[in-house]
Structures are given as C-alpha cells and as structure tokens.
Design a protein around this nucleic acid. Structure first.
Lengths: 219, 219, 219, 219
DNA sequence: ACCGACGGGACCTCCCGTTGTT
DNA sequence: AACAACGGGAGGTCCCGTCGGT
C-alpha cells in the first residue's frame, strides 16, 4: 500500500524526532479505523457487526477493543478517517485550479468522480452518514454537519476571493451557492449509485458548471 | 387519521362488492406495514428490530408473523406503503396545476414541503432506502429504483405535453431534467434534515424554479 | 417434583376461579427463579453465569430472557424466592410452639437446622446475600435488610406477648435480643459451613437457649 | 512455597547486608497484594476483575502477571495479606491487656471496632471469604478455616492461662467459647454492615462481655 | 387472528492470560 | 521490571423465527 510505504519512509524521520514510541499501536489503530470506515460506508453503522470488522482487519475482538473502547468510539474514528479521505480528495482536486470559478468546478469534479472512484467503497461517507444518523446518532450527525460546514466555509473563501478579483458577481451568496452545489452533487451521487449509472452525476455536474459560468461569473 | 377515516369510508363500499372476506386481516396487515414503514424510515432497516415493530403495533410476534413471513417481506411491504404515501403526495400536489411548467414546479414543491411535513417520520423514504440499500439489498434497491423510474416517466409525460403545446423548449431532455430535479431536491432534503434547517431545500427549490422558467420554458 | 405435582393438582381448581390465563408462563417463571436461587446461593450472584442457569433450567437464553429482562431482575426474583423459602421454614417451626420462650427457641432452632438441611443449597441466603451485596448491590441489600427487619418485628411481637403474659422480663429489649440472636446464629451458620462441622451452630444454639432461660424469662 | 520460606529466611540476613537486590520487586508484589486484597474484600473474588486491580495498582497486565502467575494465585496472596492485617489488629489489641478475661475482651473489641474501622475496606475478610468460598474455592476455604483455627488456638492459650491463675472457671471449654465469640461477633459484623448501623456489633460485644464476666470468670 | 413460550444464534463487551519489546 | 498488543473464549443481552394453543 501507498500508506505502508509512506510509513516506512517516515519512520526513520520520526525516529530523529523521538516519535519512536507507540508506533505499532498507532498503526494498528489507524488500520482498524480505515478498514472499518470502508465497511461502515458500505453496510452502514448498524448494519456492520464487529465480527465483520474482525474479519476485515484479521484481528480478534481483544485486538480491536484494545484500540477502541466500543463500537461507538470506533465508528467515530472511522468517520474521521473517511472525512480525512474526502478532504484529501478535495485538496488534490482544488490544488491544480487557479481562478475562483475553476476552483468551484474542481470542487464539483470531486463529486463527479465518485461514480467511478468513490473515496471509500460504498460511495460518499458524508451522504451515507447523514442519511443513517440524522435521527439516531447525534455524535455522528454533528461530525457530518461539521464537514458540510467546512465545505460552506470553503465556498465562502473561494467566492470572496472571486469577488475581490472581479471574477465572481458580488451579488452571489456563497452560502446558498454552497448548499445548492452540495445538494445537487450529493443527490447525483445517490442516484448514480442507486441506478448503477453515472449519468445523474454527469447531468448534475454539467448543469452546475453552466450555472457557474452564466450566473456566478461576473460578465 | 385521514387514512383511518378513508378506510372507514371505503369499507362499506367494498362490502357492496362482496369483499367481506379477509377484511380484518387486511386492515391489520396494512396497519403493521404503515407503522413499520415509519420505523424503518427513521432508524433504517438494519437498525429497526422486530421488537420495535411489536411495540409500535402493540402486537405480539405471532400477530406480525401471521401477516408477514419474515422481516424481509415486511420491509418490502413497508417500503410499498411508503412509496404509496409518496405517490399520494405527488398526486395531490400535481392535481391542482394546469400548465406543464406549473406541474413541474408542483413536483418540486412536494420535496420542498418535506422539511416541515415529511411523507413519513424520518424524511424521504426513497432517499433513505436508496442510501441504505444500494449495496446490500437488491430487492429494496430495485423497488427504490422503480420509484425513480416512475418519476422520470412522469417528467417525460409532462415535458412531452409541454412541448406539444409549445410551453416547453423542444430541446429539453426530459430524462436529464428529471434526474437533475430529483438529485437537487433529494440532496436538499438530506441537507435540510442533517442541519435541521429548511434553507437548503428552499435554495434548491428556488434555483430549479428559476431554471425551469429561464431554460425550460419556451420563450 | 413435588412442586410440579402440586401445580398439576391445583390447576383444575384454579380453572374454576378463572385463573387459567398465563399458567404455563408463570410456572416456568417460578421454576427459573427457584433454580436460579439455588445457584446464586451456592456460587454467588457474580459467580453465577446465565449459562449456569440455562443448564440448570434446561432452557435456552431466549426462554429465560422471555421471563426476566436481565440477570439483575432474575437475581431479585431469585432472592424473593429464597426469602419465601426461609419464611416458610420459620412459619413451620414457630407453628408448633406455644409459649413466648418456646417460640424464640423455635426461631433459633431453624438456624440450628441449617447445617444439615439448609433452606437452599449453599446455606442461608440472607447471610450470603448480605455479605456479597452490602457494598455493591443496593437493590439486593435493601431486600436483605428487609428480611432482617421482618425478623426483628417478629421478635417484637413475641417479646411483647411474652411480657404481657408475664413470661418474659419486661426489661428485655426485643430489638437488641433479635440482633443478638440473629448475629449469633448467622455467625454460627457461617462457621459451620466453613468448617464443615455443625458444632458452632450447636454451641450458638445452646448458648442462646440458656440465655433465654436465665436472662429473658421472668423468674 | 519455597519462595515464601526463602524470603522469610533471607529477609533478616539481607537486611544486615543492606540488601539492595530484589527489593523493588518485592515491594511491588506486596503493593499489588495489598490493593487487590481491598478490592477482593469489597467486590468479592469473582466480582473483581484483573482490570479493576490494574486500575487500582496503576499497573498494566504484564506488570501484575510478572508477580503472580494467575488471578487465583493473586487471590491467595491477597488473602494472606488481609489475614496479616487482621492478625496485626489482634496483636495490637491483645498487647495492652493483662488478665485472661481482659485479653478475651480485647479480642472481642477488635471485632467491635470493625464497624468504624475495618481492617480492610469491605469489612471482615475472614467473614467475606468464608461466605464466598465455602462451596467453590477449596484453597481459600482452607486458608480461611486456618485463621479460625488460629483464633481457637489463641482462645485455648488464653483460657488455659486463665485457668492456671484461677481467673477462669476450669469448667470452661475454650473451643466452644471461641466458636461462640467468633460466631457472635462475625454475625454482628455482618448485621452492622448490612444495616449500616453499629448497634448489632455493640449488642454482641456487650452481651459477650457480660457472659465472660458472669459465666467464664471464676468467682 | 392473535398470543405466549421458547430455541438458538449473533451481537457487543469484557475477561484472563500470553507474548514480544523495551 | 514493566508495558503494549493481541488471542480467544465467555458473559449478558437481544435478535429473528417457529410452534402450540386458544
């Protein structure tokens, strides 16, 4: 794995910094969270048993419960891992773009890529967690809402910058634009997965791109 | 309840048609499906236990299993009940509209009303079921996809009629328009429920209304 | 079992009184409580596993948990059963005695019989529960203390009657006498069981009998 | 054990030589036994988990299992520690008394002090262990019975000396007197802890003091 | 048509003990 | 000497489904 390689490379460095301690444990901790995240994303939190996670991690109960006090705690760590994966996808996509509109398009493009290459097996963890946990799991709901807030903040930053450099119409409400884009793309993800067809995502993406071009960009 | 009243009204009629047989049983059957649908919609299929349904229906195990062979079968019946509720919401909303565009707006308005008055407790059953079952439950996934297909067919009919009477731009692709509208509104439902705020739904609704007006209506 | 036979005999009678309902369940409920009481009394509450009770009752988990919501609830029911057994032993012993002093002696004699014929396997449930639960289980502690209170009340009644008929010295404090007798005999039970020798019980009994004769009886 | 014997022999010698070696280990060993003794005395042997002992000792599993091969072995060491505490309480109380009767009273006084100042948290370890282990744990039962035997031997010595100096009635049976005193006081300890009231202990103590004075002392 | 009793398996959690490492 | 990591089994609880009764 890329990750394992990365660790192998970083280890000597961290040794220099005296971070030697608790390496193995941390690694296992992360590995469990990562594999649990995938399972939770596919079968849901209540649909995934600890035994499933045991099988995926090839660890026994004792090994898992050493790192997580409960399934609840593990589910939070798993969500955090998933959120981090999503963040990295956005970071990678936004990195290449230069103008504000380009950046917004890059944001949309991340969702568009979910049909073929989801950040985790099972689709968008934000969408999945939002649907499963909105009524039943305050802790996860909170965390999920925080990701949405992050995205909205990102939109605010991008739109502000775009307005400042006269690329974006100053009338544009960043918050509303963010909600519209997230809703449309996440809805597209849902449809694409349900129908097993990426068309809905493509339609959503094209529609929003045109909208950005015609109604958000300053002419 | 409206539903109960409806039953009371319909019963004498069905009596006229000799449907005397299986009345009480059918009623219980429907009641179980209805209450299970609400539970499933809130806590999910794997998050809802038969004991929850027993409590809600005030029936013992035997009473439920007389009507449904398994939890699986009950979940299908419950989804069918939920789908029917949704259908009725759409029928009621579309009934009043006259023009094609009005009809499309009426379609969107149904989703807009979900924030304050969802068809079932727990939000949109189509969205919820799609997310929970896309990877794990082919039977429910199929049924959910069928609802989407129904909506698309509805769009086809409306758009065709609109084109025929020169209200809608003949360039409009009904299928794509349907997917866009469904994705945007369902995404809005997700956000509204997650954030506990109907703004995302309102934004989605307003955006699509303007889109219908400017880009779908024939000028 | 005697008990089962008894039930079989009583059943037709209870039918006459319309107590037909919930017969089987109640019977199983009682049987579980009785057998659990014996186990708890021998191996303690925390030392007895539900699997032990399953083996003893020849019931599966499902069968037991139908009747008791938790091990905690079962432990309370089991203690109540044990307390009832103890009560019956006292009732049987006190029934035959005539004078106040005789009644007190009969009370002591119940404890004396514990060495050879304890009310339940494992010795005195009051003593055992008191020791195990005084610091850890308020519910059981309360119930155990209530039995002690019952015994003290019994002493009050006996002593009062004895004083009234000039058989007992009016200076005698019934409460203190009760505590002394209970302490001495329960301590005797403990020693007898620990040493596997009934001598301590016999010594305690003889001592208290002489004490009753010389210092409690009115001369 | 060989190890115990070795320690007993080596200790004075190594002290002479200022023995640095093996001191830290022995200290930890004792600390674990002491803290485990308190826990076992409160929550019982089967009610106390190794994790409880880990928390109390602030040691990890490996740290404890280095000193004790198993929970079973630890429980024996803990009981030995508890027994030693009890022995010291008796030694301290008996040290001050001069006559035989005074010594017996001093013996009783130790139990009387248990209500306010038990030798360990949780009450009398002899009583607690006797009740929990009489049917289930031969090793601990043996050790507990040995403490009782010690006490009886102590009574024999005191009574013999008392008879020899004409302080105690030569008719007195030391063994029976010991059993009576132990039973009465331990029963008092049980009641005092159960009821949260030292009265039973006081009553037992006063009763036995009067008994010693009137029926044991030679007049 | 519905209830109550029960089987037996799965689930989460915790337990005791072992091993490798430092 | 002590810790961290882990195995594997047992504990209590809950689950789904069956069956006999009424």
């Amino acid at each position: 794995l890329t990750r394992a390689t990365e660790c192998a490379i970083l280890r000597p460095i961290s040794l220099l910094f005296g971070e030697e301690t608790m390496r193995k444990g941390q690694e296992t901790h992360n590995r469990i969270a990562a594999q649990a995240a995938a399972l939770f994303n596919v079968t849901g939190y209540s649909g995934t048993a600890m035994s499933d996670i045991m099988r995926a991690t090839r660890l026994e109960k004792g090994g898992i419960y050493r790192h997580f006090a409960s399934k609840e705690q593990l589910s939070l760590a798993a969500f955090d891992y998933a959120a981090e994966q999503v963040r990295q996808r956005f970071a990678a996509s936004l990195a290449e773009s230069e103008s504000a509109i380009d950046t917004l398009v890059a944001f949309l493009a991340v969702f568009r890529s979910y049909a073929e290459r989801p950040p985790l097996p099972g689709g968008c963890p934000v969408l999945n967690t939002a649907i499963e946990c909105d009524d039943t799991n305050p802790a996860l709901r909170e965390r999920t809402a925080a990701i949405i807030a992050e995205w909205c903040a990102l939109f605010h930053a991008i739109v502000s910058a775009g307005i400042a450099c006269s690329e974006i119409d100053p009338e544009v409400d960043a918050q509303q634009l963010a909600l519209l884009c997230i809703a449309t793309m996440e809805g597209g993800v849902m449809l694409a997965r349900l129908l097993g067809d990426s068309t809905p995502l493509e339609v959503a993406y094209q529609h929003l791109c045109r909208y950005l071009e015609h109604s958000v960009r300053l002419h």
